[in-house]
Design a protein around this nucleic acid. Structure first.
Length: 228
DNA sequence: AGGATTTGACCTTT
DNA sequence: AAAGGTCAAATCCT
C-alpha cells in the first residue's frame, strides 16, 4: 500500500491503437476459422463479414495514426480507467478483511522461473471459443493477471496431472468481449503427455449428482463482470 | 481435513 | 522500468 503506481507512459490513443491491433489479429484468427465452415455459401458470407471487420479495424487504425501527428492532449482519464483494475486489488477483499500477504523467505535466484526462454514452450495453439472449460482435461488454475489495455484478466491453468505425470500442458484463457455468449481466447501450450492415459472418452457427467464441480468455474467474478 | 483457488510477491524478458 | 508468467501462503470450499 505505500506505493502509488507510476502514471502510464502511453497515451489513451496508443491504448486504442493497441486494441485495434489486437482486433486485427483476432479477425485474422476468425478468418482462419471461417475457412473451416463446410457450406460454401455460409463460408463466403462469413468471410465477407470478417473482411469488413478487418477493413474497419484498419481504417480506424489509420485514422488514429494520422491523428498522432496533431498532438491534441487528451485527458488521462481514459488511460487511468483502463489500467485501474491492474493495481493490487484485483477483486477487492474477501469476506474477512484485508489479507496481509508477506512473502517471507524465498529461495534465492533459481533459474527457470518466470517466463521460460522464448520459443522454449511451443507448440502453441489459439482457439476462440465460448466454452473454454469444454475440453475433457483436468486443469488447475495457478495464476491470474490483468493484461495491459485488456478489459478482462488472463487466467493461467496447468494440467491437473502436471505433478503426477509431469504433463507440461498449460493453457491461458482470456475473455475477449462481453457479448452474449462471451468469447474466450484459449491459448494451448505444450501437448498433454497424460493424453493417452485419459483419452478414453469419459462421458462428461453434468448430471445433478455434484461430483467435483470446481474444475473450471468461469462464473466467478473476474469473468462475469464487464466494466460497463 | 484436504484439495482447489486466490492473489501479492517474485522472476524473466523486452 | 514495465509487462507478463509463475510461485506459494493464505483462504475458500466441499
Amino acid at each position: 500500500m505505500p506505493l502509488s503506481p507510476p502514471p502510464p507512459s502511453s497515451s489513451p490513443r496508443q491504448a486504442a491503437i493497441q486494441e485495434l491491433r489486437r482486433g486485427t489479429q483476432l479477425a485474422e484468427l476468425l478468418r482462419q476459422q471461417v475457412e473451416l465452415i463446410p457450406e460454401p455459401n455460409r463460408r463466403h458470407a462469413a468471410a465477407v463479414n470478417v473482411g469488413e471487420i478487418s477493413m474497419a479495424m484498419e481504417s480506424s487504425l489509420s485514422i488514429l495514426q494520422s491523428q498522432m501527428e496533431h498532438p491534441f492532449s487528451e485527458p488521462e482519464v481514459m488511460a487511468a480507467a483502463l489500467t485501474a483494475h491492474s493495481d493490487g486489488g484485483t477483486s477487492g477483499e474477501r469476506n474477512g478483511g484485508p489479507v496481509a500477504r508477506t512473502r517471507k523467505v524465498r529461495v534465492r535466484h533459481r533459474p527457470g522461473r518466470g517466463r521460460p526462454a522464448a520459443g522454449d514452450e511451443l507448440p502453441i495453439k489459439e482457439i476462440l471459443t465460448e466454452a473454454p472449460e469444454n475440453d475433457r482435461f483436468h486443469w488447475r488454475k495457478y495464476g491470474e493477471k490483468n493484461i495491459l489495455y485488456s478489459e478482462y484478466p488472463r487466467l493461467y491453468y496447468k494440467c491437473g496431472y502436471s505433478d503426477d505425470h509431469k504433463c507440461p500442458a498449460k493453457k491461458y484463457v482470456q475473455q475477449q468481449s462481453n457479448s452474449y455468449p462471451p468469447i474466450f481466447l484459449v491459448t494451448l501450450i505444450n501437448e498433454h503427455t497424460c493424453d493417452a492415459l485419459f483419452r478414453d472418452d469419459e462421458p462428461i457427467i453434468s448430471s445433478s449428482s455434484s461430483g467435483s464441480s470446481q474444475v473450471l468455474d468461469f462464473t466467478k467474478a473476474s469473468l462475469s463482470s464487464p466494466l460497463h
